[in-house]
């Protein structure tokens, strides 16, 4: 933590940490504690007075059918995004690991979606699937399937999952590729001499050896799907149709800024913070530990 050799006592270190600490306190710790406090307040309909109600807001929240549905929906959404993008990335990384020629070019062509903003990714997919103009919707129509994510909640959800997963493929790809490169060649060569083919080598050697990376990516992807997909949801569906794509971060925003239910929104914020803290702890706990065989 601290250098063996260090500078003597002086007020200088306080000045050095001051900017970071001031910003942290003003924009992070203070608002977070406000959220915590507000989550226990109940305002009257006109916002004139408020009453301290302890955990009533949380109890109301867990009695609220819409909140519980949003919760389930978020879990489903995160799982699907994580699964889809990790599966695609794993296949591509396994193939990229095998090829010698063109490996760098392939990597370049696969990593750029990382740089696309979620809201922009949403716009791209929205245009492709636009019920009247979109080329994919047109193709589906040719196959006899009528696509309209503006009316059909499941289709709206599918669209968001695809857009969110698409953006995350490059990230997962890079980490899978790095993990595969780190596996000692001798292990794979030994298996090849023993007569194991590429598929068998993948499932019995490569896949188990990259499991720490897989786990790390699972956590990262869930965090991504929980929080960073706000832009996609807000730009593409606004939680609709009929709340079919209202995930938790979107609901916090919607209830707080649009619905002006301050206590309820703050209580939702507190629950989300607890989820992030939980996920971060899991990440730190398990990523440090290497999986042993």
């Amino acid at each position: 933590m601290l250098k063996r050799v260090h500078f003597g006592p002086s007020p200088l270190p306080y000045l050095l940490v001051a900017p970071q600490i001031i910003i942290t306190v003003v924009f992070f710790i203070w608002p977070a504690s406000q959220a915590l406090f507000q989550s226990m307040l109940l305002e009257d309909a006109f916002g004139l007075s408020s009453e301290f109600v302890w955990f009533d807001n949380f109890i109301t929240l867990f009695d609220d059918r819409y909140y519980l549905e949003a919760f389930q929906r978020t879990l489903f959404f995160s799982f699907m995004v994580a699964f889809l993008s990790m599966a695609c990335a794993l296949v591509l990384a396994a193939m990229a690991e095998r090829v010698v020629r063109g490996a760098l070019a392939y990597r370049t062509l696969l990593i750029w979606p990382y740089a696309v903003a979620p809201a922009v990714a949403g716009a791209l997919w929205m245009f492709m699937f636009d019920p009247t103009l979109g080329i994919v919707a047109y193709a589906l129509d040719g196959l006899g399937y009528e696509w309209n994510h503006r009316l059909n909640g499941n289709e709206a959800m599918a669209l968001l999952i695809m857009a969110a997963a698409w953006k995350q493929i490059s990230y997962n790809f890079l980490f899978f590729l790095a993990a595969m490169h780190a596996i000692p060649r001798s292990l794979i060569e030994a298996a090849a001499i023993d007569g194991a083919g590429p598929a068998r080598r993948f499932w019995t050697i490569i896949f188990p050896l990259i499991s720490p990376t897989t786990f790390f990516l699972l956590v990262i992807n869930v965090v991504y799907a929980f929080f960073e997909t706000f832009g996609i949801v807000h730009a593409v569906t606004k939680g609709g149709p009929a709340k079919a794509t209202e995930i938790l971060v979107y609901k916090v925003y919607n209830d707080g800024f649009i619905g002006l239910d301050l206590g309820g929104s703050a209580a939702q914020s507190v629950i989300l913070m607890a989820i992030v803290i939980g996920l971060t702890v899991i990440q730190f706990r398990f990523v440090e530990k290497k999986v042993e065989y």
């Binding site: 924009f27 992070f28 203070w30 608002p31 977070a32 406000q34 959220a35 507000q38 929080f227 960073e228 706000f230 971060v249 916090v252 925003y253 707080g256 800024f257 301050l262 929104s265 703050a266 914020s269 989300l272 913070m273 992030v276 803290i277 971060t280």
Partner: peptide, 12 residues
């Protein structure tokens, strides 16, 4: 690290 902007938007 643990408080993404999405979860504390209103007070911030």
């Amino acid at each position: 690290l643990m408080l993404p902007v999405e979860v504390r938007i209103l007070p911030t």
